[in-house]
Design a protein around this nucleic acid. Structure first.
Length: 641
RNA sequence: GCCAGCAUAGCUCAGUUGGCCAGAGCAGCUGAUUUGUAAUCAGCGGGUCGGGGGUUCGAAUCCCUCUGCUGGCUCCA
């Protein structure tokens, strides 16, 4: 008999060789039906794999992240089996589960796989799933595995095996039906668990993530244990489509692109620009409270500036090429970031330690030649405005400055209605200390400052080793939007490199020159990207204070247009903005149009309202709230700001 | 940049294997209607079928190429 310890600390005895499935059955039949795999001593195992000695066991179901991963990983195998049936000669790379489903990288040989083939693949998978084939685990020697895949002619699997040989890893195969794959597992007990299937996309992907190697075809899918869950998923996807900032941006007339202007170069239309302006003003005020000083720098700078900063060497060839002038040999670059200009501002005169920290802020528009395939609406563009600032401080001031920036960022996110966020701390790779510039002591100091500051600020954090930039550790804010999707927003980065390259100094209390530390920070990241996320988070129903139009006055007929304009005037004096819909349309129509434009308040005025000096208030998405006097509406409105 | 797909009126789309002057709805314009909580009616205008080249008696439709867009990959100072 062996002792099985459960997550709640309970211990039960079972025969050696018991499986997680057996254990589940011993607890309840309902549970057994839901078990997909199990965590045995911390590793995820097949539910059908025998446990031979004492162990801690956690049963995993669809509700567990690892349970889902098992389910999707098995689904990847099932898809591979279907692909092999549909496209003879197809070769397989890797096929893992992801956060939202699974994919398999395949080399389809002569065939091409396009979205037209999805129904066919789904059908085949469903057909195979119904066979209720078990996923059988086989421990074999590496040489046997090599022989098998040589015979099959799958060079990708052979390459993976050679890698395993170097690692001296154990080799296991999994077989379901006629399909055998190199795989660590685990898998669900059999294929019939997979009830609902959707192939979602097909894309190119480089073998082993290396752009110099073979391009595979990556087929993405998602599966569910119940049809209903697929339906919910599809509904969510539809909701995401409705909220797509590119669609809403066009519909709400916020921004546009033009082929003639150029790819990835957004133009802000009046309403979008208002939104953008209000966001910037909000941040200006918050920054002023925290001791930032605004500067303005030009959009270009001499190539030498970027040779000094080191950016020319790293990005020069792959970015916008220099602008030449009538003067021989003179070259300027469109600025790809604001820091070199800000470093020059810092360096234009000597600084005393008493002046630090010096916080230089700018809404700086920068240009980067992003690869054409990377461009995406407002979230990835070639010209954008950063809500940038650079804080020059002494090393011992780092923590306090971090706290101040964290406070600013939290204020910003809260005001925007993002309640769900985490901070990702990116530290050095401890195994690779040579990759980084700056002394060991400085790094330790900076990393410590970030860790302590986030702790004191009460943030939920995740720490990533090796994700730091070569010039310093950083902290990124990850926010979750209304649909539960995660986005990276603002960033705070410590930089030891630029102060060095620009030879920046301050005179310390000891009357000796010292090197300041620089912090780059941008709570929004960029106005473009931030607004794209805000649009999708709110579905275009912006917080009242940001709405380009806060009300629409809808006269019942043109006899009330003058009264309507009077009301508009009264509200304008109270800083409430909106417009009068003077068209010769029926109110029903005016309401519909205002609803579609997502105007927060509709004020309907007719005979009764004019006589009573009132407005009939209707809230977008909610309906009629009844009549109010204009001052009543104004205070009702202000209460919701 | 790479792989795959897409590009028809301002927008959303129809135009199935090549064949008479390329269609619809919405939007726009003009007129009528003076309207009470999500689309009033009528008339009119609008397209070198993304650009260029080719195949063909004939191309929106087939081929090549360029541009842009979409989904990923790679990248993201």
């Amino acid at each position: 008999m062996i002792n099985i310890t459960f997550p709640d600390g309970n211990v039960r005895q079972y025969e050696a060789g018991v499986t997680a499935m057996d254990i589940a059955k011993s607890i309840s039949h309902g549970l057994a039906k839901k078990v997909l795999s199990a965590k045995v001593n911390g590793d995820v195992w097949d539910a059908t794999r025998p446990i031979s000695s004492d162990a801690t066991v956690q049963l995993l179901t669809w509700d567990d992240k690892d349970g889902k991963a098992t389910f999707w990983h098995s689904s990847a195998h099932l898809m591979a089996e279907a692909l092999e049936a549909l496209y003879p000669g197809v070769k397989f790379g890797t096929g893992p589960a992801t956060d939202g489903g699974f994919y398999y990288d395949v080399d389809p040989g002569q065939h091409t796989i396009s979205s037209d083939d999805f129904p066919k693949i789904e059908q085949k998978m469903l057909e195979l799933a119904r066979h209720k084939n078990t996923f059988d685990r086989k421990d074999i020697s590496l040489d046997e595995a090599v022989r098998f895949f040589e015979e099959k002619g799958d060079e990708y699997k052979l390459e993976l095996l050679e890698k395993r040989r170097a690692e001296q890893a154990d080799i296991t195969l999994y077989q379901q039906g006629g399909f055998i794959d190199l795989c660590r597992g685990p898998h669900v007990p059999d294929t019939s668990y997979i009830k609902a299937i959707k192939i979602t996309k097909v894309a190119g992907a480089y073998w082993q993530g290396d752009e110099n190697r073979q391009q595979m075809t990556r087929v993405y899918g998602i599966t569910f244990p119940k049809q209903k869950e697929l339906a919910e998923y599809e509904k969510m996807m539809e909701e995401a489509r409705q909220r797509d900032h590119r669609k809403l941006g066009a519909e709400l007339e916020l921004f546009m692109f033009s082929d003639r202007v150029g790819q990835g170069l957004p133009m802000w239309l009046p309403k979008g620009n208002q939104l953008r302006d209000r966001l910037m003003n909000f941040l200006r005020v918050e920054q002023e409270k925290r001791g930032y000083q605004l500067v303005t720098t030009p959009h270009i700078g001499k190539k030498d500036l970027y040779i000094t900063s080191g950016h020319w060497a790293k990005y020069g060839e792959d970015s916008f090429h220099p602008i030449t002038t009538p003067k021989e040999g003179e070259e300027f670059l469109l600025k790809p970031m604001n820091c070199p200009h800000h470093c020059e501002i810092y360096g234009h005169r000597p600084h005393s330690y008493k002046e630090l920290p010096l916080r230089i802020a700018e809404f700086g528009t920068v240009y980067r030649y992003e690869q054409s395939g990377e461009l995406h609406g407002l979230s990835r563009v070639r010209g954008f405005t950063q809500d940038d600032a650079h804080i020059f401080c002494m090393p011992e001031q780092l923590k306090e400055e971090f706290l101040s920036v964290l406070d600013l960022t939290k204020t910003v996110l809260a005001r925007m209605g993002f309640e769900n966020f985490t901070a990702q701390i990116s530290l050095r790779d401890p195994d690779n200390p040579d990759k980084y510039i700056g002394s060991d002591e400085n790094w330790r100091n900076a990393e410590q400052a970030i860790i302590e500051a986030t702790k004191e600020a009460g943030l939920t954090t995740v720490t990533e080793l090796g994700e730091a930039a070569f010039y310093g550790p950083k902290l990124d804010f990850m926010v979750k939007d209304a649909l539960g999707r995660s986005w990276q927003l603002g960033t705070i980065q410590v930089d030891y490199n630029l102060p060095e390259r620009f030879g920046l100094e301050y005179i310390g209390a000891d009357n000796q020159p010292h090197r300041p530390v620089m912090i780059h920070r941008a709570p929004f990241g960029s106005m473009e990207r931030f607004i794209s996320i805000l649009i999708e988070h709110t579905g275009g129903k912006f917080p009242l204070w940001l709405a380009p139009e806060q009300f629409a006055i809808l006269p019942i007929s043109d006899r009330f247009n003058d009264y309507a304009k009077g009301v508009q005037q009264q509200l304008a004096e109270l800083d409430i903005r909106g417009f009068v819909d003077e068209r010769g349309e029926k109110v029903g129509r005016k309401i519909r149009d205002a609803e579609v434009r997502k105007v927060p308040f509709m004020l309907i005025v007719g005979e009764q309202e004019m006589e009573g000096q009132q407005v009939a208030v209707r809230k977008q998405g909610e309906g009629d709230l009844g009549a109010m006097s204009v001052p009543e509406f104004a205070s009702f409105f202000k209460a919701q700001l």
